[in-house]
Design a protein around this nucleic acid. Sequence first.
RNA 1: GGUCCGGUAGCUCAGUUGGAUAGAGCAUCAGCCUUCUAAGCUGAGGGUCAUUGGUUCGAAUCCAAUCCGGAUCACCA
Length: 608
Amino acid sequence: MSIVSSLQKCTAAGLSALFNQSFTEKDFQVNQTKPEFEGDYTVVMFSLVKSLKLSHNAIGNQLGDHLTKNYPQFFSKYNIIKGFLNLTVSDAYWVDLLNKNHNDTCYGKKAMNGKKVMVEYSSPNTNKPLHLGHLRNNFLGWSVAEILKASGYEVIKSCIVNDRGIHICKSMIAWQKFANGATPESTGTKGDHFVGEYYVKFNDAYKKEVDELVAAGKTKEEAEKESPIMKATQQMLLDWENGKPEVIDLWKKMNSWVYAGFDVTYKRIGSDFNIVYYESNTYLLGKGIVQQGLDKKVFYQKEDSSIWIDLTADGLDEKIVQRKDGTSVYITQDIGLALQKYEQYKIDQSIYVIGNEQNYHMKVLQLICQKLGMPNADNIFHLSYGMVELTTGKMKSREGTVVDADDLVDEMVATSKQHTEELGKVKDFTETELKELYDTIGLGAMKFYLLRVDPKKTMVFNPQESIDFHGFTGPFVQYTYARIKSILRKVDSSLLMVDSKDVPNQDVSSMNYDPSTMSLLKLEKDLIIAAEQYPSMIEQACTEHNPSVIANYVFHLAKTFNSFYTEHSIANAETSAKKQLRVQLASITANIIKSGMGLLGIAVPERM
RNA sequence: GGUCCGGUAGCUCAGUUGGAUAGAGCAUCAGCCUUCUAAGCUGAGGGUCAUUGGUUCGAAUCCAAUCCGGAUCACCA
């Protein structure tokens, strides 16, 4: 249990005993004590003054006495300033915590809880390569999955590939018309980029045709309808739906190019999936459900035989779920897939990592599932994240301002190479080690940069800032880790106990100090306090589905360590007791950094 | 127009179950490498928490109104 929880419980129990009324943790507030006051944690007593009709001082004195007397293992002393009861946690508590956990690589993680969660993320279109926005999605999805695992959930990562539809046909038509049989191999182009080029070519050709038709006297609307290339594309979509062999062959061929390209990118950025759904397989799902919905009168049919749901009572609009020609719309297959996911895995929760532009759509989806009485409908959760904008404004493909994912990764890795070479600290690395290090730092910087911001918020991508490796960045945290590992390599490893997850309750008689009498310097204590908070940070990140909680925390921990490191020597500590204590401190810090960065999908180097 | 989200230092962001003098990083300025990795540390300056009103012992945080920005409201996906 965290010290904050302990304090809340002890305070509630203490108040109940002292004042003969029942109190719970909600009746008062516990905060970390502000640095300008003495103490570690603070009970705010203003809310108690009214119910008890006593002064702060009276309450504070009685409660402070009670806590220090009855829980000396937690609290050593207290002071009262205005309505704030500041408690000092005893050094013995901190030291004991350090002893028990300093070499536990699973510190902060929970045992399996038997619950199953699906995290759907990434979900690309097969007509263009991944861009910066996809990166935020991928990093978020992967990290949230890790955070859920650390919190005891079994996680199934899924991906729905948007591999069919009019937009896919656009790049197919353009390839037929303009490629002269060119392939990724023949042009030496990565498959997804290759296909993306034809998607662009389609739009150029289409625009040209429309302009010409408009110049010939048509209205814009007419021109858009009559454009030959668009008509050909629509015909191709029909041919695809009818299974016309040469169209299917072309579709398969071009998609396979895209997948080959995606595989490379996914491998590079670390995305992976337990199950991949393809829209070409799922787009007919949900049609049966539409019929059932009609029978249940959740849906209704209009005269033209299109099928709708009326959501006006829920503050939304009417929504079509099946066209008059009997074909399904986007949301129909989503309903079908939602049910399939549940039937396939019996998941307790279904998380969708999708941008906030689809907030309305996801609200409608969940509402429909609920009205249909689907078993998992209440456990659909839309992890809605904000768009990534540039300092110059939004990314616009038409204006060519889209930041390509592969290019960005390459730039970040190149920058990390350049910085590393300038510093000249790794001259003895082999070529392979160097390459791995550049990847670790470059990708670490990028992931940290995108994950450090609250997912819900729109964020600005500043290229200069993103390649800064100082301050609140991934490389800063990685560097702190490498410094600690450098020290730990040099000191006697017997100062650390073996990993306590392997050998619980091991003999501590070889300790160089007595944990019950060891006193802590301020910077030592600050570091243990920070380390103690890691488990509750994982909890918070999990309930909020928010990796930025971890990013902010890990940065804070690293910063706290660096202050400690500059001020006090570990290897040459004043006494052997202090040396062991500090080695343990370094160890727990390194373990948490590695673990926390791992939750963000970021590797840490042993040396840099 | 309806609905939803946001507005905190020059810039990028924390902080919102209401608590003490609103915090980081970048940028600017001033210091610190013969001692465990200076991708580091220490310090300084920088704020009408969009505005106005309300709730109360106490509001960046809760409520209302207003202003500004964004998203969305397709027989597109």
